[in-house]
Design a protein around this nucleic acid. Structure first.
Lengths: 371, 371
DNA sequence: GTGAAAGCGCTAACAC
DNA sequence: GTGTTAGCGCTTTCAC
């Protein structure tokens, strides 16, 4: 494997000249540059990233910390990955996938090993130990999700609370009086997994607002468990005529359990699921769903980090993408158009709309925090 | 950020002693080790990966090269990623995601930059320029997919040819006489994208074997294009009563086009799709599908590479996972059980079954290449 | 059992 | 416009 020294020797110049010719930090005469270029090609030289990094240059490597998934990641989580990967690739960064098992510990390790310049965190809890650690260290990171206290942090999230409210409202309008809401949380809810807590809260608020009865269930396990929970829900409260499923992981279980229980969808039971568009398209009978713009979220998470690393944006950016209830278009190719029934609104926070590459982003900043 | 020198100073020993205490390559007295350990903790020291790598130690970083996906990756491709990530995490490796745009060029760059120890390639063509390059370099890599000439290479693939044959046979048994097969290929078929070529061949062979008529279509674009192609197929040949879809990316388009055309599934048209289990579960009416064990393939791809890197396995391993036609179980939680209708067989290659963590692997080696 | 010192391949002063 | 050289943080001889 040829080194810079090899190139220098072959071109008959000093090592530093090669370095400067490549970086352009210092002028190099055209002839020299030419000879160096030739030597590089003849030798098939490629700069060594390790050495470059050790000498203090940015490595252009960012990491995505994702949860250890015993049963594989959900569609939504995978789309976070693909979104982040897209941005990394576009900005000439490498994306390191890291499974965070030991929480806190692992985070530190990655952060300190010098290879990775910044972190994207997924599966954020309301009080997340990783966030506490990284913040203390002043290490660059962004979150897909957000905590209770996000002072000075950048993140992109989806408005799960509103998503649940929109779903309930929709079901109420359809005439349902008793609604169940099934939420996935990777650990006891007490640990405060954001989407679970917020969906549940939104669901409960909406029940009150619409003067309905219902039941919120949280399960933290396998598809099998989701199946059982759903079955129990149907058995316990026969008047349940609509269900909201907040995780695409559980969706198949819910459908199956319902069918096995002897109810037909959508005749005997209405279903609203939180899903990525891709996931919803696979569900053959047109499905009412709240689209989680997962790919987009992955993209933005990475963009925020990289902007920060490049020093472009020092102000923290906090995005909560709006929830919309969508129904699969009844004809035409998938993805072509969807009818939007209800759009987002949220209290206590000022919202302004800004155009983005693919969707309109709604940016919420706490008052007085304007850029 | 504390360095080894800081630790050494604090512990009152030489740098090398710290190094040896950590690596265990040379005995260090218990007391010294103790003092060093304490210094490490007090300082919050973490070894620098870059320096370690530069000094000749393995970096424990492997990369997964995945295709630039204008419209996001398919479910199957994403599962390759999650499978590989799982293994990397388990074996204490980091997984670098790299989007290969400039083919050949990029591959080289990664390989030479010194950071990455080995590559996993996806989207393999029958004659793949990346493979040619890497092989010439003697750089460690494995493939998810395989080429025409795989002499000395390790790979895991899925038996697309048999998958198509099994599907046709199944449809023939159901009484269908005219079958269409829709295949996705990211580029003109002439470039020889493995799964496309092999599915098509399997389909054509099976038509002959079963004395049927049919049509094989390849589309290389968007869901919209898939929709149009499907529509044209139905319009051109009204007797088409069954369709095989070899990519989960196209599945929604196909279903939608069929419905819009005025045919009902499965009443007027039978569908068999190649999908991951997760994808199939999302399709609500029980779907006949050939399960592409994508997560498993990603896992094996990574395992083969890492085994090779650790020097455990120098013999190339070539796996072609068998194709099975599955039908969604009509009750019980998803993933619990599936009925297997047909299993794999292939000519010209000797097969032997070996147990793996999750599925039974069938290993095919060319004759005379036995380990 | 421990230290001193020579690299690994690169960048960035500091000379000239 | 170019060469010389001191690090970056670690591993690993070679000495004691």
């Amino acid at each position: 494997m040829p080194t810079m020294a090899d190139v220098a020797k072959r071109a008959g110049v000093a090592i530093s000249t090669v370095s400067y010719a490549l970086s352009g930090v210092r002028p190099v005469s055209p002839e020299t540059k030419q000879r160096i270029q030739q030597a590089i090609e003849e030798l098939g030289y490629h700069p060594n990233l390790l050495a470059r990094g050790l000498a203090g240059k940015p490595t252009r490597v960012v990491a995505l910390l994702f949860p250890a998934a015993p049963r594989g990641l959900s569609q939504v989580q995978l789309e976070f990955v693909s979104g982040a990967a897209e941005v990394a690739s576009r900005t000439d960064h490498a994306l390191l996938l890291w499974t965070s098992a030991g929480e806190d510990q692992q985070v530190l390790r990655l952060a300190m090993e010098g290879l990775v310049e910044g972190l994207i965190l997924m599966e954020i809890r309301l009080c997340d130990p990783r966030v506490v650690t990284l913040r203390k260290l002043g290490y660059p990171f962004t979150m897909i999700g957000h905590c209770q206290d996000n002072e000075g942090l950048s993140f992109v999230d989806f408005d799960f609370e509103e998503a649940a409210r929109v779903s309930v409202r929709h079901l109420a309008e359809l005439g349902h009086r008793y609604i169940a809401c099934l939420t996935y949380s990777p650990a006891p809810l007490e640990m405060g997994y954001g989407p679970a807590v917020r969906s549940k809260r939104g669901f409960e608020t909406a029940l009150e607002e619409n003067n309905l009865n219902g039941l919120a269930c949280v399960y933290d396990g396998s598809p099998q468990q989701a199946y059982q929970v759903m079955w129990q829900v149907l058995a316990a409260e026969p008047s349940t005529s609509a269900v909201i499923v907040t995780s695409d992981l559980a969706y198949p279980s819910i459908v199956q359990a319902t069918t096995d229980f002897g109810r037909r969808i959508p005749h005997d039971l209405s279903l609203v699921a939180f899903m990525s568009q891709r996931g919803a398209e696979l569900a053959t009978p047109p499905l009412s769903y709240v689209e989680i713009p997962a790919h987009e979220m992955g993209r933005i998470g990475a963009e925020l980090l990289i902007e920060r690393l490049e020093g472009k944006e020092q102000q923290p950016t906090q995005l909560i993408l709006p929830a919309q209830l969508a129904v699969r278009s009844s004809s035409g190719p998938p993805g072509a158009h969807r009818s939007v029934i209800q759009v987002h609104s949220q209290q206590g926070i000022t919202g302004s709309v800004e155009s983005s590459t693919k969707v309109s982003r709604t940016i919420y900043r706490k008052k007085g925090e304007s850029p």
